[in-house]
Each structure stands twice: as C-alpha cells, then as structure tokens.
Amino acid sequence: MNKPEMIRYLLDEASTHLRHLEEQRSQFCSVLMAVVAGILAFGASDSSPHRDLVGYAIVGLGLFGVLLSWRQNEKINYYKSLADSYVQKLLATNSDCSDLVGHQKEVRRVNARRYLWINRLPTGLFWLLLHVAIVLLGSRLVLLALGTTH
C-alpha cells in the first residue's frame, strides 16, 4: 500500500468514526427525550405527591445530557480535524484528489444554499441547548412543586 492509499484509508477511518459519533449522539438524544417525556407523562400530574422528585430527575437527566453532549462534541471536533488533516496530507502527496476536492466543494455549496445562515452555527450548540432546556424544564417543575407544598 503506497502513501496516498494509506492516507485515503486513514481518512475513511476518521470519517467513519465521525459518522458513528454523530449517530451515537443522535440516538442518545432520542432515548433521553423519550425518558423525559415518560417521566413527565407519569409523574408530573397535579395529583402526584412527588412532583419535586420528578423535577429533580429531569434536572439530573438534563445535566447528564449536557455533559455527554459536550464530550461527544469534543470527540467529533477531534475527528473532524483529523479528517481535514488527512485531506491536506493527501493533497500534499500530489496524487489525483480531484474527486475528493470536488465532493467537498459540492457538499459545502449544497449546505450553504440549503441552510443559509444556520450552517454557520455548530451542530453541537443545538444539542447543548436542547439539554439545557431540559434542565430548565426540570428546574421549573421543582420550583412549582416546592411552591405548592409550602
């Protein structure tokens, strides 16, 4: 295996790992949202004597989501930079990379047209804001529960 083939292989590995991490983050978020919805549906009714516990559980899940999402963002950013460095190394070998460069340009063009201004914001920011919203929802439930019991 020559140097350009090896770099392409490493680029493929980094890209595969990057996609895996993004899929993992998405699956985790889906499960977290289902659990929070279940807790809200069964535990936050007006007749529930433990609404504060429901709020604490939601705050805990939200904080866990914030930390996990933050960690996933770090890993994703690492593998993005690794893949970018492999692309640069591949370009430096003077091998035929027209397919790779053309694909990158097309993806950027489509994303810029499709998402306009929002594609400038990091995806991880939206995930973090979602988990922060869960924390705020749980905090609101705790405050409501404590306000009605005293």
Rank of each mutant, 00 (worst) to 15 (best):
A34R: 07
V59L: 13
A92C: 07
T93R: 10
L67C: 13
A57E: 09
F64C: 03
G38H: 14
S30P: 03
Y86D: 00
G43K: 09
G55L: 03
E23N: 12
Q72K: 14
S69E: 04
Q24W: 15
G38C: 12
L128P: 00
S69H: 12
A112Y: 08
W127L: 03
V87A: 03
S26P: 04
H17S: 06
N111G: 11
H50F: 07
S26Q: 12
L32C: 14
I7C: 04
R113W: 11
N77V: 13
L32T: 15
L141K: 05
L18D: 02
V66R: 02
V132P: 00
L68T: 01
A34Q: 15
A112E: 12
E23I: 08
L129I: 01
A41H: 13
C97P: 04
M1P: 07
E22H: 13
G102A: 10
S47A: 06
I58C: 02
S48F: 09
K89G: 04
K3V: 07
S69V: 04
L128W: 02
G138C: 05
Q88L: 10
T93F: 14
N111V: 14
L63H: 01
T123E: 09
K105C: 12
A92R: 10
S139C: 06
S98A: 11
Y9I: 03
L82A: 02
L18M: 12
Y78R: 12
R140D: 11
I134F: 04
Q104A: 13
L21I: 13
H20D: 06
T149A: 13
Y115C: 12
C97K: 02
H103I: 08
R108D: 12
A44N: 07
N111I: 11
V31A: 10
H50V: 11
L61T: 09
E22K: 14
V35E: 15
L82N: 01
L137V: 08
E13R: 05
T149L: 13
R109D: 15
L11S: 01
E5W: 10
T123D: 13
K105G: 15
L128M: 07
R51H: 11
D84Y: 08
L63V: 09
L10H: 10
E23T: 07
H131Y: 05
V87P: 00
V135T: 06
Y79W: 06
L129A: 11
S81L: 11
F126Q: 03
Q104G: 13
L68E: 05
L91D: 03
K3P: 04
V66G: 01
A145M: 08
Q104K: 15
G62M: 03
S85W: 02
H103W: 07
F64A: 04
N111S: 13
A83S: 13
L18P: 00
A133L: 13
G62C: 04
R140G: 05
R120Q: 15
L121V: 10
S85Y: 04
L40C: 06
L100H: 01
E74W: 15
S95F: 05
D84S: 12
V142E: 05
Q27G: 09
L21W: 15
E106G: 09
R120W: 11
N2M: 08
H150Q: 11
H103E: 11
G55H: 03
S95E: 08
K80D: 06
G138E: 02
I39Y: 11
E22N: 14
N77S: 14
